[in-house]
Write a protein that binds this DNA or RNA. Structure first.
Length: 424
RNA sequence: GGUGAGGUGGCUGAGUGGUCGAAAGCAGCGCUUUGCUAAAGCGCCGUAGUCCAAAAGGCUACCGAGGGUUCGAAUCCCUCCCUCACCGCCA
């Protein structure tokens, strides 16, 4: 959620930035939010004055009672009753004014960073970095969904039996490869200074709200209605919410966390070859990195995170590219997002395996996640997160890109974790 | 699932109708004392909204949440949520 003060102080700039995100009628929307905030403020002031008067009278009445001047007290009592009626009305008005403001404010997406390219579709994303050669596969190379069957690594049908489509069962070396990747990613994150946490994978409504999944994107999460819990779509939700309603010490920033969790996404309406095999699942594993930063250096940190993730992909010897997402392709809450895509050679397509974003204060505003500045005032932190990495598509790319007539070669960096060099 | 206890500031914890935004202690910050450390003394020390150019300061709200009683509620009443303990069940 944006801060009204941002919009007030930099009105034209905010409008321009909203336009970059292809937000319709940005100028009218911003003007309305500012007006609604002024309305809210004036009602608040009126109410505060009225309450002050009532408090004052109540104190006088107390004093009169003590002195035994009951008659005088009764006169004042009468007066407070009138004030009370008035303030009741204002309380209702204030609630309305706050709701009106909130309803409009939550519709506004985060303002994109100045480096974000204009554009509407994924075609407009800017390739900022490419690494590695596109591998030339041998004649009989096949997509990963055939390899997983051939080598008995993943059983998609069995998952259908147990749960449904999109819940694969990993087996044998397929299961071990998963475990190896998780441990590799966590070890790397630890080396880079991220503190590991193991959060719950069910969260309550407050947490869903804090990171912005609720109320709008309720449909993307699995909901346990009996207990009103949600299965997390990403570790970002529980990990970032650790810091909800806190005031961090400035010297403790940035806070760096990493977490491995399963992730659950309903992804309603998806079909076709985009969801074939491991490309899109309802349950998948992911290691996430999260940072809570001082606004002063959050963009330096974003670049660090980007190069950290790039380093992982290099170590895994996967060809990849980094995209700076255009205004139209960015998520609602992000100010700047880099997507990392690996090339999946048998499918001959790029697969998104990581998304690294700076949300600036958009999330922390909702989370009430602050730090104390030199002048002892509280300010909103910046929140950042990134996948490091999402497993299924990494597995897909490893299987496809490394397939040979002799079998599938495990990237050497993983061998200490898998304890085998080949899948054959 | 059953029974009981309880939710107060960073923590511990007092507070059963006005003088309570809240005692006291701990932690933290500043100063004094001190060869250093420690100890001691003094002062400061919740969040948010709003007024003021800003500081100082003023006003308002917040003692789990929401209602109610009252001129006045942390305190009384109702509803809900949560936590803890014990028992049962499961691992």
């Amino acid at each position: 959620m944006l801060q009204v003060s941002q919009l007030k102080e930099n009105t034209q700039e905010s409008i321009d930035k909203l336009n970059k995100k292809n937000y319709k009628d940005a100028d009218a929307a911003v003007a309305e939010v500012i007006k609604l905030d002024d309305d809210r403020k004036s009602v608040q002031t009126n109410l505060d004055n009225l309450l002050a008067e009532q408090n004052n009278l109540a104190a006088q009445i107390g004093e009169l009672f003590k002195q035994g001047k009951k008659d005088e007290a009764d006169v004042l009592k009468q007066k407070t009753l009138e004030l009370k009626e008035q303030s009741k009305t204002l309380v209702v008005e204030l609630a309305e004014a706050e709701k009106n403001l909130y309803d409009k404010l939550v519709l506004l997406p985060n303002l994109p960073h100045s480096s974000v390219p204009f554009g509407k579709t994924p075609q407009d994303n800017e390739v900022v970095y490419e690494h590695g050669e596109i591998p030339k596969l041998y004649d009989k190379a096949t997509p990963h969904w055939e390899l997983t069957t051939k080598y008995d690594l993943i059983d998609f049908e069995l998952g259908v039996k147990l749960t449904g489509a999109g819940f694969p069962v990993y087996k044998n070396k397929g299961a071990k490869l998963q475990r190896a990747l998780i441990n590799f990613f966590l070890d790397e994150a630890e080396k880079a200074g991220y503190i590991e946490v193991q959060p719950p994978i069910l969260v309550n409504e407050d947490s869903g709200f804090g990171t912005g999944q609720l109320p709008d994107k309720e449909g993307q999460m699995y909901h346990c209605t009996v207990d009103n819990f949600y299965l997390i779509p990403t570790a970002e939700v529980p990990v970032t919410n650790i810091y909800r309603d806190t005031i961090q010490k400035k010297e403790d920033l940035p806070v760096k966390n990493t977490a491995y969790t399963p992730c659950f996404r309903r992804e309603a309406g998806s079909y076709g070859k985009d969801v074939r095999g491991l490309n899109r699942l309802h349950q998948f594993d992911k290691v996430e990195i999260v940072q809570i930063a001082n606004p002063e250096n959050s963009y330096t940190i974003l670049e660090e995170m980007r190069s950290y993730v790039a380093g992982l992909l290099q170590k895994l010897e996967l060809p990849f590219r980094t995209l700076r997402l255009c205004g139209g392709d960015m998520s609602f809450a992000s100010a700047l997002t880099y997507d990392m895509e690996v090339y999946s050679a048998a499918q001959e397509k790029w697969l998104e395996v990581s998304s690294v974003s700076n949300f600036e204060s958009f999330q922390s505003n909702r989370l009430k996640l602050r730090f104390r500045d030199e002048d002892k005032k509280t300010k909103l932190c910046h929140t950042l997160n990134g996948s490091a990495l999402a497993l299924p598509r990494i597995v897909a790319a490893i299987l496809e890109n490394n397939q040979t007539e002799k079998g599938i070669k495990i990237p050497s960096v993983l061998v200490p974790y898998t304890k085998f060099e080949w899948i054959n």
